[in-house]
């Protein structure tokens, strides 16, 4: 039985944020906080301990998912960072330090399976189930989970 993850959702499209949050909760995890911009993320208390962050690339107030990614890496270095974006081609080869990407438009099955896989790996790496096709892993995830 996998434990409950605390998840950060950084998405400026409210409809998608609501949907992703619902999928996280339906999968038995907790939404720690939601943010629509880098500024929102910076305003979060430092003592959070998210295991997972879903980060859109294009965010409110002209901020980007890359900025959020580097902020998360500084403040919560253990957090798994997964980009959720329609602009997969804009992601550099090293993923700016993030661990993977889910391409939009995502499917319910795709996101739910990715959450299951990530939760499995977050608490007891490496994951015992195969990685779903909906989640593209970055080099960092591969080194992290061998």
């Amino acid at each position: 039985m996998t434990r409950t993850m605390d998840v950060l959702v950084v998405e400026d499209e409210m409809l998608l944020a609501m949907d992703i949050e619902a999928m996280i909760e339906d999968s038995g995890h907790r939404v720690l906080a939601e943010a629509a911009s880098l500024q929102d993320v910076q305003a979060l208390p430092d003592d959070l301990n998210p295991q997972l962050a879903f980060v859109d690339l294009h965010l409110a107030h002209n901020s980007t998912g890359f900025e959020v990614c580097s902020y998360i890496r500084q403040h919560w270095p253990d957090t798994l960072i997964i980009f959720v974006t329609a602009n997969v081609s804009k992601i550099p080869a090293d993923f700016s330090g993030a661990h993977g990407v889910i391409a939009k438009p995502f499917s319910h099955a795709g996101v739910v399976n990715a959450i299951k896989y990530l939760a499995d790996g977050a608490f007891d790496p490496p994951p015992s189930i195969p990685r779903p096709a909906s989640l593209v892993a970055s080099p960092h995830l591969k080194t992290r989970w061998g």
């Binding site: 499209e13 998608l16 949907d19 602009n87 995502f106 499917s107």
Partner: peptide, 20 residues
């Protein structure tokens, strides 16, 4: 292409929110 992606994503999200 971008708009199609966004709209498909939103349609899916809307339906999912309704199902709940």
């Amino acid at each position: 292409d971008h708009r199609v992606k966004n709209n498909l994503t939103m349609i899916g999200s809307l339906l999912r929110l309704q199902v709940r």
